[in-house]
Design a protein around this nucleic acid. Structure first.
Lengths: 199, 199, 199, 199
DNA sequence: GATGAATGAGCATTCATTCAT
DNA sequence: CATGAATGAATGCTCATTCAT
């Protein structure tokens, strides 16, 4: 029993990891399922035991990676003793962006496939009850010295700006390499946060 | 012969228009070249006379549509007597976004395929000499009562924020339908512009 | 244990019934063994414990259903006090056809898969010793006021004509709906019977 | 032009003939499209240029072969100076059956795949205007010394009986080899014809 | 230039069958 | 007896691309 379940998990993870590797190196369109199973060392039929098709595994992969990223940032924030919403959000953004800068394949993969709606559902509407990222964010807001209005709008605006600008600045180094663009981005983020403060 | 050239142009345009129609309705991946030529009423071989492959025609289509959009906005701005950089940029953004709101297939098509690098090349670095969009922008900046630093950074930040946020707000109505989100977006844009002013 | 044997029988019957249901609704070609076991609630391997493959279960099913049909007709004939071979055979044919008319999936299934040889073996040559259908038929013949020659030929001709004509008339209503075609069919059957009488 | 069309026809016919050969020798289910194209010496894609799928080519094949058979019988009848509807119909049946007896693969192929509805449409309802088999039959009926009622019913009954009985008698030699069964069959057919005569 | 028949590599998906537990 | 995870051969079908006319 335990042995079988263990084996199942092993195969599923082998497929998961292999798919991620191939998607990020060869691109999704150019990755055939036969590539995945071959590299993962399982039979073709086994793939269909665990995933519906290529897009099923892709979506699960994207969500998984995005979660990892934000949880890591959240954990790091908790460890660092940062105070004040502004600094805290900048800290999280910085953490996520730094992780992506050092992992451009992941940056590319996430950016191209993260149907924003999915992430937004998680981050902003907090629909996914077993996921506390949004809750952590709300907590940060409530603990700040200031009060804020239209919190969801604020979060949305920041995520869109940071996500889009960082993606392009990192990958294309235009209009500036990200390190140089960073101060501008964070200044804008701070302005947006402040504009949501209740006086 | 003028007649022959005309005919050539006609076929090319038929392919161009048909491709756009199919890409926006069926999606690019699901559109085969045979679909395009069939609907356009030309032979399969003819396609390869004018375009290298599906992605060639796609890219040309994206640039073409994006150009149309900005030129229309620029023309409209010239007609309206708007003064001050802030109001002028808001005017342009508003014009483009309104056009996209009324044409969601176009919004989708542009957003998914506009490799930002391409547009940025056009809009921001002005590389493309026969295209005056960037020049018009520079002119607006120079004519303003205030002076600005890091103009490219400013333009980049605005384009990323407005593009990304508008896209998601329009299509998914999250966190708010765009009409309701608009005031927040424009407030943020104005803040960004102001932050680039030389005191 | 009786309990174990019962359980065994239960599983086999579940497979049998489920296969019949799926064969008649989805067709044999479109029914996979996995469909059968899934619906029957048994494991895939269990199927191979009782049947060799899809065609094994199909054949057993056809014979089973055909037997049921004729036995029911024979029983009914015994209950009704019909006299004379002509009327008796018409009675049986009518009984079988009526049952099939009210169960078109069965009609379809039987007709498409009843390799006539199999039924003929049963009905005409009486090979299958534990099956008394043929014997009952011989008895009817012997009890009639008339004598008959080439009894097997007669039975064969009647079965072929009635089976084929009824099948098409019922399913396609061509050249007439069966109810209207019936008098013609039965007239022909009576002529065939009479033609085998010894003067 | 002529050359191209000629070539097209050649390929289509190669596929047609090869498919027939494989269907009759290996069976339809066991014949893969790759088998057909390989043996026909064309590329896989070419198959789909001319036929939708395996069942498309099968249906076209069945109709084609059935037509050939009846036309040949009709032509032969015209050449032989047979008089009287009874003898004429027997002549046609005999001609068709003889052809099938000498070509058992064809007998098998036709019998298993000729959706009777299709043939009946042709033979009995005469829908297919460019096919004169039914017309020829009507002509024979009208030229006979006797008058007949319910002609379609008569034709249908004969076709069903002869088709079904001959098929089984030829292939399985049960209850008798066809040559021995033939007199019985034809006697029945004559009885059926006579039963439709107007006195 | 224009055509469209032909190509054939490429790929997703299914499914009967096995066998370790 | 029963299970169901794993297999991988088999196959239908698509489609970009070429090239003789």
């Amino acid at each position: 029993m335990g042995k079988i379940d263990e084996n199942k998990k092993k195969k599923k993870e082998a497929l998961f990891n292999t798919a991620y590797e191939l998607f990020t190196t060869k691109g999704i369109n150019s990755t055939a399922i036969s590539d995945i199973v071959e590299k993962a060392g399982v039979a073709k039929g086994t793939f269909y035991l665990y995933f519906k098709d290529k897009y099923d595994i892709k979506n699960k992969l994207v969500v998984h990676k995005a979660r990892e990223l934000f949880h890591s940032a959240g954990d790091s924030l908790a460890a660092a003793g940062v105070h004040g919403l502004e600094d805290q959000l900048i800290y999280i953004i910085d953490h996520v962006i730094n992780a992506l800068m050092e992992n451009k394949p992941l940056l590319n993969f996430i950016s191209k496939n993260l149907v924003m709606g999915a992430l937004r559902s998680t981050l902003i509407t907090g629909e996914n009850s077993d996921d506390d990222i949004y809750d952590r964010f709300l907590e940060l807001v409530s603990q700040d010295d200031y009060s804020y209005t239209d919190i969801n709008v604020m979060l949305f605006t920041i995520v869109e700006l940071a996500g889009s600008a960082a993606y392009n600045s990192i990958l294309y180094e235009e209009p500036l390499p990200f390190e140089e663009y960073k101060p501008f981005l964070y200044r804008s983020v701070r302005l947006i946060i402040k504009s949501h403060r209740v006086p």
